[in-house]
Amino acid sequence: MPQLPRYEYTGPVDCTIPPNRAVLKGKSVIITGGANGMGEATVRAFAAEGAFVTIADLDEVRGQELAKELSPNAQFVKCNITSWDDQVQMYEAAIANSPHNSCDIVIANAGISRASGDDLWPLDDVNEPPVKPELNIVNVNLIGTMYTWKLAIHYFRKQPDTEDRDRCFIITGSMVSWIDSPANWQYTSSKYGLRGLMRTARRNSHEQGIRINYVAPCYIKSAIRSAAYEAELMAKGVEFAPPEDVAMCMMKLATDRTINGHSLMITPKSVSKEGFKDVGMEDHIEDGYFKRTQKAQLSIIEDQWVPGWSKGRTAEGAAKP
């Protein structure tokens, strides 16, 4: 497996160093939610560098069109990420049809927003029985991406064990993981959850040679948003970033094996000329309670991410007598 050092804070990622695009040639890349928007831009960027991209999406028409356009460097697999079986088929197809029968890079990009309907938010009629929410946004964004992560671990470990292979997992999160976004209850909760997954997984990911990072877009130009609403947002001071900047951020993470456990945020060019930068808020640097507690937690939790470790441990992680 790829040899990675244990995660420790070494400062922010230098985003001024451009991605080494050459290393993508022949790599197998899965991009969920890859048929439109940020996902499509990322698919195009990786396929252009000779990677074999599996486009996983529910939009069969657009997905097939994109795969045909980018052939032979892309294939489409219809996939609902809330379905474990769909995702298994996605991974199997990615490996079976890739140049080296591998799965090198997984970009967990699929997700839905408040626009799809947040049934946690509405106020019910107090004179009627309470309505149980379906929590579809949480199911897609959080549970679906956890499926993607769990399966990535399995298939990363099955791939050819050669020096040129990578095990890279990237989560599409959101800036709402750091800023309040009123009424975005499920969406914000799910993106916070995914950021939490990255932060905890990075502490053991080296034991399986897996890099995990988080990308946080804010306002990205998209055809899904009406021109009128976009103009209204701009009038309120919103600066939009193009989806191509998301693709370049993904490429930076995918091609630099030294990056593990970081969150990069997509920014307007007025903030960062590259269109993205390190968030710089994932570690407790200043001396104080949080830094001391984090150090203690890393000492208390002794779990190792290796086969058979849990057999000698209780459910809470203590050594069995």
Rank of each mutant, 00 (worst) to 15 (best):
V23E: 06
P19T: 05
C15T: 15
N20Q: 14
A67G: 10
A35G: 14
G33E: 11
N36D: 13
A67T: 11
G26R: 08
V29R: 02
V23P: 01
A45F: 01
T82E: 11
N20I: 08
W84C: 09
D14C: 07
P72A: 13
A22I: 00
G33Q: 08
A41I: 02
L66Y: 01
W84N: 13
L24G: 01
A41F: 00
T42R: 00
M38F: 11
Q75H: 13
F46T: 02
G39P: 06
S83L: 10
G26M: 07
I31T: 07
E49Y: 00
R44G: 02
C15R: 06
I31F: 10
E69R: 13
I30C: 11
K25E: 14
K68S: 15
V29K: 03
T42P: 04
G63P: 02
N20E: 15
L70M: 13
N73E: 11
P72G: 14
T82S: 08
I81Q: 06
L66V: 05
I31Q: 10
N20W: 05
F52H: 06
E49R: 04
A22G: 03
A67W: 01
D14K: 07
P19A: 05
V53M: 05
L66W: 01
N20M: 11
A51L: 03
G34W: 12
T42M: 02
